[in-house]
Design a protein around this nucleic acid. Structure first.
Length: 325
DNA sequence: AACGTCTTCAACCGCGAGTAC
DNA sequence: AGTACTCGCGGTTGAAGACGT
């Protein structure tokens, strides 16, 4: 028996999404939550397959997504996690809540891979000068420790992902969140998304011709979505506002690798984020079950102790990571 | 200005895992 | 237990813009 196609190939639109399609999708998800993707094309009238809808949502429209350049810290995180986890982009993305696995994968393939290869080839035949803390120890010892570290991290990840994980973990997938969400939560959800408001900004600037507006797109949903400010005030949390600042999961990533702040420009935002917002940020990530491994990994990263461990990753340089491959 | 090449990234494809029946 | 179906992941592609000649 052959595998059935995920959608009818006939009459299914492919290629880039239009703002109109985005609005339709966002409008639908606002009301129903990101679940039962199979039903999305039918219910929205979108001529897209369910997979395409899900992908569009998770990689572009989902709230809390940060776009644009990767920071040095993010770069380091990706490099290190890639060394630990390999090309498990979804797992890596779970440590960078604002980035999608697709983004990270693309960034790795287009930037980091090249960068590392370049450095690797550049280092061949050159003495290793400008050594970081981790490199100051004899190379053999460092490599040995690194192997042990990787082994420990993998073990920790395995344990953390075992079925005995706490209940809050097992039920934290975004679809679960949404299938259980009440309508009010659903409304807040869509209204609080910077991506959606950004989308709507563009939408307002160049509104579609009336004939292009699908009947599924209710005025009510448009109002809800564009009313980000009013909703944000309901929460009393400026970070819910639609603005140009990126949302950030507070705390956790400040501590990761000992960064004072994941990005200094975000610190204000993260400080002002309410617990609800924090929860939302955590839950909006599809694979939030990796939060526990994160803490274990973080512990492992810092278990190097006060001696040198804490600065290990801050000090880690691209050539450090290059040697991991 | 025109053309060719390179780079980027959104989107697609196929597969495996999980789940409902 | 077996089948059908959905979802999520990772690899890959291709359109579009950037850049160089």
């Amino acid at each position: 028996m052959g595998r059935p196609p995920c959608c009818d190939k006939e009459g299914v639109k492919k290629g880039p999404w239009t703002p109109e399609e985005d609005i339709l999708l966002v409008s639908y998800i606002q009301e129903h939550g990101p679940a039962n993707w199979r039903a999305v094309p039918t219910n929205t009238g979108l001529l897209r397959c369910s997979k395409s809808c899900r992908l569009r949502w998770t990689n572009y429209l989902r709230p809390g997504i940060k776009r644009g350049n990767f920071t040095d810290q993010e770069e380091k995180t990706i490099i290190h996690l890639q060394a630990l986890l390999g090309n498990r982009w979804a797992a890596i993305a779970s440590y960078l809540p604002q980035r999608t696995d697709n983004d990270i994968k693309n960034y790795w393939n287009t930037h980091l891979n090249k960068k590392l290869k370049k450095l690797q080839t550049g280092l061949e035949g050159h003495p290793r000068d400008g050594l970081s803390a981790s490199q100051k120890m004899p190379r053999g010892q460092w490599e040995k420790r690194l192997q042990t570290d990787i082994h420990l991290a993998k073990q920790a990840l395995r344990e953390a992902l075992s079925p005995e994980k706490p209940s809050y973990m097992s039920g934290s997938k975004s679809s679960d969140v949404w299938s259980n969400a009440n309508p009010a939560q659903s409304s807040n959800y869509a209204s609080s998304t910077e991506n959606i408001s950004r989308l709507l900004k563009g939408w307002k600037r160049s509104p579609p011709k009336p004939s292009e507006t699908n009947s599924v797109m209710t005025q009510n949903s448009l109002n809800n979505m564009s009313g980000t400010d009013s909703v944000s005030s309901d929460h009393g949390t400026p970070s819910w506002k639609s603005n140009d600042k990126d949302l950030i999961l507070p705390g956790a990533f400040d501590s990761l690798f000992g960064f004072e702040s994941f990005d200094s420009s975000h610190s204000d935002t993260s400080q002002s984020m309410s617990p609800e917002a924090t929860l939302f940020q955590a839950e909006s990530k599809p694979d939030s079950c990796a939060q526990l491994p994160f803490s274990l990994l973080e512990k492992w990263l810092f278990d190097e102790g006060a001696s040198q461990g804490k600065d290990f990753l801050n000090d880690i340089t691209l050539d450090d990571s290059a040697n991991l491959f």
